[in-house]
Amino acid sequence: MIKFENVTKKFDGFTALDDITLEIPKGTAYGLLGSNGAGKSTMLRLLTGVYKADKGIVSIDGAPVFDNAKVKQKLIFISDETAQYSNMTLNQMKKFYKTFYPNFSDEIFNRLHGVLELPLNKKTSSFSKGMKRQAAVICAISARPDYLFLDEAFDGLDPSMRIAVKKMMIEAMSDSEMTIVISSHNLKEVEEFCNMVGMLHKGKIIFTKDLSELKGNIHKIQASFDKEVTKDDFPNLDILLVEHKAGLTYIIAKGDADRSLNSVKAENPSFCDLIPLSLEEIFIYEMEALGYDKTQLDS
């Protein structure tokens, strides 16, 4: 289990992470979301022992991560910086991972390499950004760590490669109960891959939830009324937002889906339907409900 307990990290007076507390259970695919500068990369570096927290404790399986070689044997970090293996060939990268991670599996490496068909003896400096990312993922998965951390996991990958990489990671998780933490701007990718998500904004964690729970708890109802309805017309509902667009009313509400639908129907709409929300929409509405406006989020 990964644990953040009241973790604060500052850079020359700038607070990158502010009193973060969260838990990520073992075997989870955790998506870390947030805009640029939200603190995602800082959080991953704290998780992998690259940075030391100014306050609070970052621990994995009950032991602090920073300067702890034993704990770090269980984890691999692939940062968004692709230049780190530039001087190596894929074969050398394999040797490097094999040196430090005793569980490294040649069999897995050969299998994954067979899928992605990367040159083994060419310096990775000649690779494209996507190829470098693939090479790093192949090695990391082959090393069979308990915890895999990827910063901007799918950055630079074309759609087919994204699918292939995701497949590899899902297989690794099912084979060895690997915990994967990824950070991404791409909410769609996270939605497809993760079963738990956390949202960071300006160094604070806005929420951390199981994805199905998150999706099951927030709904969008599309309806048509002959009058203009407002939040006040639905006192029994936990409404986040009521929008009017092209003669239709959209109601975003938290809570049980059936109860929400019935409450809307009670107002006699000429048309009423439950629309599934994408993760992106959920985030936007949640954030708006918390007082962040859309323009601020986009910045």
Binding site: Y51, A69, Q73, F100
Partner: peptide
């Protein structure tokens, strides 16, 4: 070098090592 920091900082090593 930043990229070396990420690469080597997460390896199973202590500062002394």
């Amino acid at each position: 070098c930043k990229h070396r920091t990420d690469m080597l900082g997460s390896l199973p090593l202590t500062h002394s090592m």
